[in-house]
Structures are given as C-alpha cells and as structure tokens.
C-alpha cells in the first residue's frame, strides 16, 4: 500500500477545523496560545455554535485572536475583557460569550474587572492563559511569575520581600459565589490537551445554563520569553509551573 492510497478523504482521522481560518498565526513556534486557539475552534465546531459565539480578545499576545477563529469578536481595552463580555452577554443573552485573556491582562491590570465579573456571576466563560510572564512586551515579571523565576525585570529571580508572592487568580475566583466551574488545565501533552478541550466545552456549555461564570485557567509556556525550545519549555513547565499551579477542578457545581 502506497502513501497515496492512504491519503484519501475516506481515511481521514484528523484535520484542521474549518472554524479556524487559514491565516498564519503570529505566535512564536510552539506557543501554547496556538494550541488553545485550536481547541476553542474545535469545540465551537463540535457544538455547532459558530454563528452564535462572540469572543472578547484581550490585550497581550492574543490581541489578534480575532484573525484566526472565524466567529464574531470584540477587542477590549487592557484587562477590561470581562466587563465587555458582561455587556455583550446582557445585550445578547442567546450568544455564547467568552473572554480569552493572558496573565498580564486578567491577573494584573484587569484584576478588579475579573473579580467583580465573577462575583456578579455573569454567564460567560473566561479562558485564562497563564505563562507566568508578560510575553508580548518582552518577558517582564508578571503577578503570576514564580518565586525564583527569572524574567527580564527579575534577572536574579523573583523574591518575596521585593515582589511578593505569585498571585493564584484561579484559586481566588473559585472562592467567589458567582462562579460555577473553575478549573486549571495545561496543554503540554496529549492527555492534558484532551482534558483542556473537555474543560473548554463545559465552560461554553455552562454559559447557556444560567449557572454563573466559568473560569478555565490554562498553564502555558512562553518559549521565547523563557529562552528555551518549545519542547524544553514544556518540560520546564511540568517541573516548575505545575507544582506551583496544580492542575484539576477547583469548583464544579
């Protein structure tokens, strides 16, 4: 059997979802953002909600998210994505609304908006990409940077006396009465990619059930910001990020 016999549409196992368009993504090679974009697009196709989904793009590396996933998008001011999502969802309650935010957006400048949106229990899904660094601006220290982790503004490693403790936003949000589903996942291997996809699906489904806000944190890599190859970044994340940000559901009601 030759390769040409195998490569036939009837033998297809996996192909790029049509919800993701052909525009080449601007992300660095091996970036976790791309994997999460792909998973969101796949879930939207599986749920058949392409014309009923509105995404809110953040400021950060994912600012161009609207170029890659073929749904309706709004672009929010820095950190204000949950507030914009609140407005969109209240005006159009029949739409699936999600925000897609990084740690500089959600956990730094947008802390107040995030906490109050979750506390009000808005029926939206929040996808939170946590790579422990300000990736887009050049790898500066973020609130989520680990103790001892090097960044361009903490070249000897973050220290508690100077910079305080890493901020565990997801744990904080799980304690609010407005959230219904709070989970932390990662995308560094196939098993975790599958779990993350399930979490994304559940969060989008919850946004129609009038239960409250769903938060999916995805512990991610930034190979350019961490100065490692994509494969090394995944290993480093597994050894250092995941012990500090343990994976799993924190709340599911």
């Amino acid at each position: 059997m030759t390769l040409n016999d195998i490569i036939d549409p009837k033998n297809l196992v996996y192909a790029k979802t049509k919800v993701m368009n052909d525009t080449p993504m601007h992300y660095c090679p091996g970036c976790s953002h791309s994997v999460v974009h792909k998973l969101i697009a796949e879930v939207i196709e599986e749920l058949d909600i392409q014309d009923k989904t509105i995404g809110i793009a953040p400021v950060g590396c994912a600012v161009f998210g609207y170029k890659y996933i073929d749904i309706d998008w709004q672009q929010a001011a820095h950190g204000r994505a949950p507030s914009l999502a609140t407005a969109v969802k209240r005006l159009l309650p029949d739409r699936y609304v999600f925000t897609y935010q990084g740690d500089g957006d959600l956990a730094a400048i947008g802390t107040a908006e995030t906490i109050h949106t979750c506390n009000r229990g808005e029926n939206i899904a929040i996808f939170f990409i946590n790579n422990g660094i300000y990736g887009m601006t050049g790898g500066q220290m973020a609130p989520t940077t680990l103790n001892g982790m090097k960044s361009t503004t903490s070249p000897s490693g973050r220290t508690v006396p100077l910079s305080g403790h890493p901020l565990d936003m997801t744990k904080l949000l799980a304690q609010l009465d407005g959230t219904c589903y709070v989970t932390r996942q990662s995308v560094h291997n196939i098993a975790n990619i599958r779990k993350t996809k399930k979490a994304i699906k559940k969060a989008l489904e919850n946004s129609m059930l009038d239960k409250g806000t769903s938060v999916v944190e995805i512990v991610s890599t930034c190979s350019a910001g961490w100065n490692m190859t994509p494969a090394d970044s995944n290993n480093w994340m597994e050894q250092n990020m995941i012990p500090a940000y343990p994976l799993g559901d924190m709340k599911d009601i």
Partner: peptide, 15 residues
C-alpha cells in the same frame, strides 16, 4: 502529532 501541533498544520489518515 496533530493533537499537539500548535498551528494545526497536520492532517492524519489511517487505514
């Protein structure tokens, strides 16, 4: 390979 591919470049066939 296709599941981990960040840029969804890989199409897989199986017989």
């Amino acid at each position: 390979c296709a599941y981990v591919c960040p840029d969804a470049c890989i199409t897989v066939y199986k017989v």
